[in-house]
Computed example of a mutant assay.
Amino acid sequence: MLPLKWVQNSLHDRITSDELFHFVGHGRPADHEANFGVLSKVLRTGCISHPPHDGTAGRIGYTVTWNKHLEDETLIVPTVTCFADIPKNALSIHISKYGAFGVALSRSLLVARGARPVTYIPLSSGDWMSLSGRGLLRDIEAIRKGFSIRVIEPCKECLPKSRTYGKEPSTFEEAIAAVEEILDKEFLPFLKPFNSELSDCDADNFYMEREWRKYGNMKFRASDVTTVVVAKGYEERLLVEFPEYADRILPISI
Rank of each mutant, 00 (worst) to 15 (best):
G27A: 12
R28D: 08
D31H: 12
A34L: 14
N35K: 10
N35D: 12
F36W: 15
L39P: 00
S40V: 09
V42N: 05
V42I: 15
G46T: 02
H50D: 03
P51F: 08
P51C: 04
T56F: 04
T56M: 09
G58V: 05
G61L: 12
G61D: 11
G61K: 09
G61T: 08
Y62S: 05
T63R: 13
T65S: 07
N67Q: 07
K68F: 04
H69D: 14
L70Q: 02
D72V: 10
D72N: 14
T74I: 07
L75V: 00
I76N: 00
I76Q: 01
V77S: 05
V77R: 06
V77A: 00
V77T: 13
P78D: 05
P78H: 04
T79M: 09
T79L: 06
T81E: 02
T81V: 08
C82S: 08
F83W: 09
F83L: 01
F83K: 00
A84R: 01
I86W: 01
P87W: 03
N89L: 10
N89K: 06
L91R: 06
S92C: 14
H94S: 11
K97Y: 14
G99Q: 14
A100Q: 13
F101M: 01
G102M: 00
A104K: 00
A104M: 01
A104D: 04
L105E: 02
S106G: 14
L109F: 08
L110M: 07
L110I: 06
V111N: 07
G114Q: 05
G114F: 07
A115G: 02
R116C: 04
P117F: 01
V118K: 02
V118F: 02
T119W: 04
T119N: 04
P122I: 01
L123F: 12
S132G: 14
R134I: 08
G135I: 12
G135F: 09
G135V: 13
L137M: 07
I140N: 01
E141G: 03
R144T: 08
R144M: 05
K145N: 09
G146E: 10
G146I: 03
S148Y: 05
S148P: 00
I149C: 11
R150T: 08
E153S: 03
E153D: 08
P154G: 10
C155K: 10
C155R: 11
K156H: 13
K156W: 07
E157T: 09
L159K: 05
P160Y: 15
K161T: 12
S162L: 10
S162Y: 10
G166Q: 11
K167V: 13
K167Y: 09
K167E: 13
K167C: 07
K167T: 07
